[in-house]
Amino acid sequence: MSDFDALQAVIRRHAGARQAEQRACEALLNALYHALRTASGPGLPLNNVTLDFIPDPGLRLRPPPPGGWHAAWVRLGLCEVLVRVRWEDGAFVGEYAQGGTFRLDETGEDALIALARRLLRDVAAAYAGEAPRPGTALN
């Protein structure tokens, strides 16, 4: 078997796991989008929030290998925020904006709302010229 054939075989062998990981990461990004829409509280939806899935700009291999990043632009009214997420050690790990990071060990509504509110505060701080806060686990 040539090196090329070995590469093709390993890509095919891990395709199912890679696709499941992609679906999970995209589902988390979609859930974050919905959390951002409701971050203002019950009955106060933010109507000017949109989500646009994109290939990760830092991607150096396609398709992404297991543990690779999945990305989306989230439009929040007048600005857009790049959010990247991947599955790592049983949790979702992510990055957003200019230095914002997070780790979600569970993805319940409360954890997603907390992340959405922190993302909104951090983006506002970035536009105000304040230093980003280091990321922490949300739960």
Rank of each mutant, 00 (worst) to 15 (best):
S2E: 07
S2N: 11
D3A: 13
D3V: 15
D3T: 15
D3W: 11
F4C: 00
A6L: 14
A6C: 06
Q8T: 07
R12L: 12
R13K: 10
H14A: 12
A15T: 09
A15I: 01
G16K: 10
A20P: 01
Q22R: 11
Q22P: 01
R23Y: 00
A24R: 04
C25W: 02
E26C: 09
E26Q: 11
L29P: 01
L29Y: 03
N30Y: 11
L36Q: 08
T38F: 14
A39H: 07
S40T: 10
G41L: 07
P42Q: 11
G43Y: 00
G43C: 06
N47P: 04
N48C: 10
N48M: 13
V49N: 09
T50L: 06
L51D: 07
F53L: 15
I54P: 06
P55Y: 07
P55D: 14
P55L: 12
D56A: 09
P57H: 05
L59I: 15
L59E: 13
R60T: 15
L61I: 15
L61C: 12
P66Y: 04
G67D: 06
G68S: 08
G68W: 02
W69V: 10
W69A: 04
A72N: 09
R75S: 13
L76S: 06
G77D: 13
G77S: 10
L78N: 14
L78F: 14
C79W: 10
E80K: 12
V81Q: 05
V81Y: 03
V83W: 01
V83M: 02
V85P: 01
R86H: 06
G90L: 05
V93L: 05
A97K: 00
Q98C: 12
G99S: 04
G100Q: 05
R103C: 12
L104Q: 06
D105Y: 08
D105T: 11
T107P: 02
G108L: 09
A111L: 04
I113E: 07
I113R: 11
L115R: 01
L119N: 03
R121V: 13
D122E: 15
V123T: 11
V123C: 09
V123L: 09
A125F: 11
A125I: 09
A126S: 13
A128M: 07
G129Q: 08
A131I: 15
P132G: 04
P134V: 12
P134A: 10
P134F: 08
P134C: 06
G135P: 06
A137C: 10
L138P: 02
L138A: 00
L138H: 01
N139D: 13
N139M: 13
